[in-house]
Design a protein around this nucleic acid. Structure first.
Length: 958
RNA sequence: GGGCGCUUAGCUCAGCCGGUAGAGCAUCGCCCUUACAAGGCGAGGGUCGCAGGUUCGAUCCCUGCAGCGCCCACCA
């Protein structure tokens, strides 16, 4: 049972993960009714997806929380699963079959869906395998998929119930239409970017008079669907034309000139063409004027839709659309229309113009506002005046209140505001998609177009008493993927069945997610949770930042700066990394640049750091919810940290194996160092716990790092050495009696540290724990199920802390002189103590061996008040002087330089402090402790100053 | 147009209730000391974006400005 000479993450990680999973440690286990359960829902990744840095980070946080609470003894569930990701997945599979020269229409709906399922079973589970590599202790036995039977039941149940209540409705209006994917999208799936475009100034001739009215537009091709021209009511340039008509060029229609405050007189020509079927604003203007007398012609025409599903000019609007344009794609139509207008002298000019172009988030296609029938969730009840079916209050209200009342808490808090703003300005949610992969809308139609909504066709026939003779046809559309995601916190737990899991784990404890899906997902989960469970879906929402590269750039394929978490764990050769980064890159020059950059950034590829190092890095970088610049150097540093822990464990094992380390001894003696170490452990345990409770994983990680490296390794292990190896030193008798207590402390503190670090670094802590637990008097199958270290005030020992503080100051003082004087570390130096108090002498008595070993002191002599010390280098510990004689050891000039630097620093501080103390305002208004503190500082500095000054004089050449 | 955030060491970031600053990495010395050179010991490095204000005292609170970033929104 020894540890390998060096830390090798790879074999221990796969070994322990398999063991944990097989033994069922990830499942929640039996409930402890005395404590509340703890539950986290994994934000379901897309089945198409593979693990990226954002996931890896998020999973680290969730797993750390899960392991922490499990160790705290709570019944803990981390619910995993995957999302069917309708559009994304359909696109992936379509691309596959396109490569074989087929389209989904060759397959037909059923066969295509079958093909997608087949694809899912072949290559869908990659991300869950990768999650396991991250050490995720999720309840895999109950993994769910949004298209599972149970989840589909939940979706149908919710849909039907909201429909029956009038909250879901079907309506014909403008939607965001993706002409490439041929589907409607919700507002959220449309991203507007500023792009360079033009503003065309078009002349519309007056109908009954000479002259023209110039309209400015960014979309000249939609003019075929114009219904009016609008000006501002107060715009004196045009008041005489309001109520008159203009001729729509290229057609023989006349359009009314209307006045509407929507128009900005300052912009363009001050006249706007109103094209209600192709612009959301125009639609509203039109709606305001549709019943006016001027619009009489237009009522006859209705809304003129000029596009097909592909955004080409349509031919079925009769004579409204001139045949010359029919069938042209929108961008070709634009060119032809502009050219034709120009030929007729109706193009006044073209200005360069920057404008926002809406694009589909998946296809990148320019989105068209398009008039179609779609299904909506009503989120605006009290804002709309048209006659939608009645119902209760808006379902956004309880969602807003859940946060306002504090039932749900955002961490960090400021995301609340963003959440409110969005929910308060929301439009109805378009939930139907014209694709095949997803939950088919549970609505059926008869030949008359009547709508019947129910869980299934048979339920519908029953519910509406429809005869079997009557043919019903199910709606072809599927639901927005986010509709099913919105139900995730309760659908995965069994709803609509009232299962034990549902009762036990809903509401869940915390949702861990990125700010980018607050709207897509978080808000909708809260809405649906409040509606169907009558209770919040989670009590806290921890919002984390985005993972960027080391210099704050977003990671993206086209920038070639993407890191794959699995590569950081396993390592990757340079050539493989280059291949990966340029594969599928369309622009060759970009590929070349990325390849060059990659070769220079990672000349030897990326070494494998192991999962624990990666996880620790994520934890250490996770401060306060802001974006995270991921620096590879940090992982390297934390891999070294793992190695440090590993070697510390080796040291401990070497010293406790086969020896008495206190398992059977009752009355052990403990040294001050032992007590100090135990005391430090308490303080750290408290800080780590507080940090985790605040989601400050950076603070938790730093505390653990500091405890292990600085306190345990650098100080405590070194302090143990004189005791453990006393045979080689003096003070034999004193130290021998401490050996058992030291071994005991050594191994027990290590064992506690492992438990403390386990939520962040599960693998290395388990591996070591298995080897040392027995020596620490622990048994158990796994560290995973051991109790988390708890702060114990009784084990805080302030006396020991003071004493060790003194010891450390002595050691540091001597080391400082040694370091700055370049005295070889192996060389022992004599040390003299001047001006030592009785307390100093007592402490020396108890701790002399530490000074001898850790500071490499050859001898320690106490000077009497009348003794004249030799020329020495000096360091101060309180009022006591540590002196190292110069003779033969130290360069006098160098020591003088050092002393002068110290003197200067003291002088500066002294001036600051005395200035403060001379300030009457400070003395009278500052709190007493602060003043006292400054006074004490002043005295200390003066003592130090005098001693240093004397020393300078003493060794100065005269 | 509205909202949010950021600016601290060469780099990446902490910094609580206001008492004039810390970490990791990088840099520079000295060391292969029997856990660890993936290491040890030591050192240097900051006008806390700028300008005001409040205060005995401001990196911290307030106001303004500059720069950077993000989110939302219907100027054709």
């Amino acid at each position: 049972m020894t540890l390998d000479k060096s830390y090798n993450p790879h074999d221990i990680e796969s070994r322990w993960y398999t063991c944990w999973e097989e033994k069922g440690y990830f499942s929640p286990g039996p409930p402890d009714q005395s404590k509340p359960p703890y539950c986290i829902m994994l934000p379901p990744p897309n089945v198409t997806g593979s693990l990226h840095m954002g996931h890896a980070f998020q999973d680290t946080v969730m797993d750390a929380l899960t392991r922490y609470h499990r160790m705290k003894g709570l019944q803990t569930l981390w619910q995993p699963g995957m999302d069917h990701a309708g559009i994304a997945t359909q696109m992936v599979v379509e691309r596959l079959i396109n490569a074989q020269g087929q389209t989904r229409h060759h397959y037909g709906r059923d066969k295509f869906i079958h093909r997608v399922w087949q694809w899912k079973s072949e290559s869908g589970g990659m991300i869950s395998r990768q999650l396991r590599r991250m050490g995720a202790s999720a309840d895999w036995e109950n993994e769910r998929f949004t298209l599972d039977e149970g989840l589909t039941d939940a979706v149908n149940e919710v849909f039907v119930s909201l429909y029956d209540e009038g909250i879901i409705y079907r309506g014909r209006r403008l939607v965001n239409w993706d002409p490439v994917l041929h589907t409607a999208l919700s507002d959220l799936e449309v991203l507007s970017e500023e792009e360079q475009g033009s503003l065309w100034h078009l002349r519309y001739p007056l109908w009954d008079a000479d002259g023209v009215l110039t309209v400015a537009t960014t979309r000249p091709e939609t003019m075929l669907g114009d219904s009016a021209v609008a000006v501002h009511p107060d715009d004196a340039r045009f008041t005489h034309l309001v109520g008159k008509f203009v001729a729509l060029p290229l057609t023989n229609r006349r359009l009314p000139v209307i006045a509407d405050p929507y128009v900005d007189p300052e912009f363009g020509s001050g006249c706007v063409k109103i094209t209600p079927a192709h612009d959301f604003n125009d639609y509203q203007v039109w709606a305001r004027h549709r019943r006016s007398e001027a619009m009489t012609d237009q009522i006859h025409h209705g809304l003129i839709n000029v596009f097909t599903d592909d955004a080409a000019i349509r031919g079925d609007e009769g004579e409204l659309i001139p045949p010359a344009y029919v069938g042209l794609d929108r961008f070709d139509a634009r060119k032809k229309i502009v050219a034709d207008l120009q030929a007729q002298g109706l193009l006044e000019r073209i200005d360069d113009h920057r404008l926002k172009i809406p694009r589909g988030d998946r296809s990148g296609a320019v989105i068209e506002p398009y008039l179609t029938d779609q299904w909506y969730v009503d989120l605006t009840r009290d804002k709309c005046e048209d006659g939608r079916p009645g119902g209760k209050a808006k379902i956004t209200d309880p969602a807003i209140n859940a946060v306002k009342t504090g039932a749900i808490e955002f961490v960090p808090e400021n995301w609340r505001k963003i959440y409110y703003q969005w929910l308060e300005n929301i439009e109805d949610w378009c939930i139907s998609r014209q694709i095949w992969w997803g939950h088919r809308i549970p609505a059926w139609y008869d030949d008359q177009g009547n709508i019947y909504v129910g869980q299934s066709e048979s339920r519908v026939r029953e519910k509406y008493a429809i005869d079997d003779e009557l043919t019903l046809r199910q709606d072809d559309d599927v639901l927005d993927t986010w509709f099913s995601s919105a139900l995730w916190p309760f659908s995965t737990l069994g709803w609509p069945q009232q299962t034990g899991r549902l009762n036990r784990f809903y509401p869940t404890s915390v949702l861990v997610t990125g700010f980018d899906i607050i709207f897509f997902w978080v808000a909708r989960m809260i809405m649906m949770g409040m509606k169907f469970m009558g209770e919040v879906p989670f009590r806290q929402v921890y919002i984390h930042g985005l993972i960027r590269d080391a210099h704050g750039q977003k990671m993206s394929k086209s920038k070639g700066n993407v890191l794959d978490p699995i590569d950081l764990i396993d390592g990757i050769e340079l050539e493989a990394l280059v291949d990966k980064r340029v594969k599928g890159m369309m622009q060759p020059h970009l590929a070349e640049k990325i390849a060059r950059q990659t070769r220079s950034d990672y000349p030897r590829g990326i070494p494998g750091f192991g999962t624990d190092a990666l996880r620790f890095t994520f934890a250490a970088l996770a401060s306060n919810g802001r974006d995270i610049n991921f620096d590879l150097a940090r992982v390297e540093g934390y891999a070294n940290f793992c190695n440090k822990l590993w070697n510390a464990a080796r040291f401990v094992l070497m010293n406790v194996q086969g020896r008495d380390c206190g398992q059977n001894t009752l009355n052990m003696a403990f040294s001050s160092a032992d007590k100090w170490m135990v005391s430090q452990l308490q303080r750290s345990a408290l800080k780590v716990e507080e940090a985790i409770n605040k989601y400050r994983f950076d603070q938790a990680a730093h505390e653990i790092y500091d405890l292990i490296w600085n306190k345990y390794c650098d100080w405590y292990l070194e302090l143990c050495k004189p005791v453990l190896h006393y045979e080689n030193g003096h003070h034999k008798n004193d130290l021998a009696s401490l050996q058992v207590g030291t071994r005991c402390t050594l191994v027990r503190v290590l064992e506690s540290i492992l438990r403390l670090a386990h939520p962040i670094m599960p693998f290395i802590t388990e591996e070591i724990w298995q080897r040392i637990a027995l020596f620490a008097g622990k048994d158990g199958e796994t560290i995973m199920l051991q109790p988390y270290p708890q702060f114990d005030a009784d084990k805080v020992d302030e006396a020991a802390e003071r004493e060790m503080g003194w010891v450390m100051q002595c050691i540091l003082g001597i080391r400082k002189i040694r370091g700055e004087m370049d005295i070889a570390p192996g060389k022992r130096v004599p040390v003299l103590l001047g001006n030592a108090s009785a307390m100093d002498l007592e402490r020396l008595q108890r701790n002399q061996s530490y000074l001898e070993v850790l500071a490499k002191a050859a001898s320690i002599e106490v000077l009497g008040s009348s003794d004249e010390p030799p020329e020495s280098a000096i360091a101060m510990v309180g009022n006591m002087q540590l002196l190292i004689p110069i003779a033969g050891l130290i360069d006098k000039t160098a020591e003088l330089g050092r002393l002068n630097r110290i003197a200067l620093k003291i002088q500066q501080e002294l001036e600051q402090v005395s200035k403060k103390l001379e300030n009457q305002g400070f003395l009278s208004k500052a709190p007493k402790e602060v003043v006292e503190n400054e006074k004490k500082k002043l005295v200390d500095l003066q003592v130090k100053k005098t001693a240093i000054q004397e020393q300078i004089e003493k060794i100065s050449p005269r």
